[in-house]
Write a protein that binds this DNA or RNA. Structure first.
Lengths: 204, 204
DNA sequence: TCGTGACCGTGACAGCTGTCATCTCCTGGG
DNA sequence: CCCAGGAGATGACAGCTGTCACGGTCACGA
């Protein structure tokens, strides 16, 4: 039998991190060599520990899991990344694959499938949650422009147009134009609704 | 040595559920006797399995963890409940304790403390995340009335006042009055912001 | 019994929002 | 070269929103 697969775990919730470590420790061909709670520590710790596969949550402080996957791709081309996340938003899948992730699994897949996903990714295969793959095709690509996304992200907090304009350094009129455009593209009628829909689809 | 403590796990994410089971299985004095993914299955499965302690996530379909704790308290008075949740919102802690939960732990506590929390709860002790306990006192009680909460919950989706009014069966004018009152109580300036703040504080 | 407060509603008003037309500037195809 | 499209901005307009004042009902405790 060959050497065990070395795994790095990245999740901001310590309890989940420890629990996943316990779960993977049950597999004799896997070994957890590093655990981090922030996205911006992934590359350094992966290098130090000589990890083969990085399990990355998306919601993390410092750097989100998708950006961390891109950073790993850049700095350590031989290391595979597998996104493990709570939210199966179609846009996340697309962006994860664009960032060079080898796999995408949501947190409500059965526990025993996780180890298998790690093995497949390590073997150079792609692992994609099948239910999401189809949904991703149906939803199509992200229609929002960069500025529209930026404005919508700020609009999530719920402030007035004037407050949004101040935070993105634009004129209030321009902000309203971008919001109006985003409202149209999301088939909604208020900016709060548009922001919610865009977030749910992983467009932000 | 006495019999192991029988634990029921409730979390809507199968991966987290399985991982927590693996984590607790490392402790020789604990045994996971049931796992459920919905709040409304907790009481039945706890009864069947003869669980001593129920670990409950808050975000669950069917019945949320706090309501599930109340249901367990009602149907199985001898069974202790321990809330294990992602969000350390002060209002959640208060409501959890009011619902009869014996403990409240957030998911970024260290993994090894979970088993200890289970033991303490089983022994009849209260376990409360210390950082939250103080924060809960600072924030004070939920100042929103029942109607204000209802209107704010619907307002989270971001629709117009007319849409909210239709969903709660009130006149648009009344909805605006409730929203205005809620905006004042949250020290915000728009209903979207008020809804966000109220949700973050666990007031909804 | 009275006062208090939650609740529901109406009407009015200032201000904010969403939409549209229009303009300029810049960039990347064809 | 010209054109399309993103970005930034302005002005106008109808409609929506947040606020306030006011009136009414009901339940609860003093």
């Amino acid at each position: 039998m060959s050497d065990p697969i070395k795994v790095l775990l990245a999740d901001d919730q310590a309890l989940v991190r420890g629990a996943l470590a316990a779960l993977l420790a049950l597999e004799s061909d896997l070994t957890v060599v590093a655990e981090v709670g922030r996205g911006d520590e992934v590359v350094d710790r992966a290098r130090e520990s000589g990890a083969d596969v990085c399990l990355l949550d998306i919601e993390m402080p410092g750097l989100d899991g998708i950006a961390a996957a891109a950073a790993v791709r850049e700095a350590l081309p031989g290391v595979r990344t597998l996104i493990v996340t709570t939210f199966g938003r179609p846009g996340y899948l697309r962006r994860a694959l664009e960032a060079g992730a080898s796999g995408f699994v949501v947190k409500d897949t059965p526990a025993r499938q996780l180890a298998e996903a790690v093995r497949r990714v390590h073997a150079g295969l792609r692992v994609v949650d099948p239910s999401l793959a189809t949904e991703s095709l149906v939803d199509g690509a992200n229609p929002l422009t960069e500025r529209e996304r930026e404005v919508l992200r700020v609009a999530l907090d719920g402030g007035t147009v004037a407050a949004i304009a101040a935070r993105v350094h634009l004129s209030p009129g321009t902000v309203r134009n971008h919001l109006s455009s985003a409202i149209g593209k999301t088939s909604t009628s208020t900016r709060a609704e548009a922001a919610r829909v865009a977030r749910e689809r992983g467009w932000l």
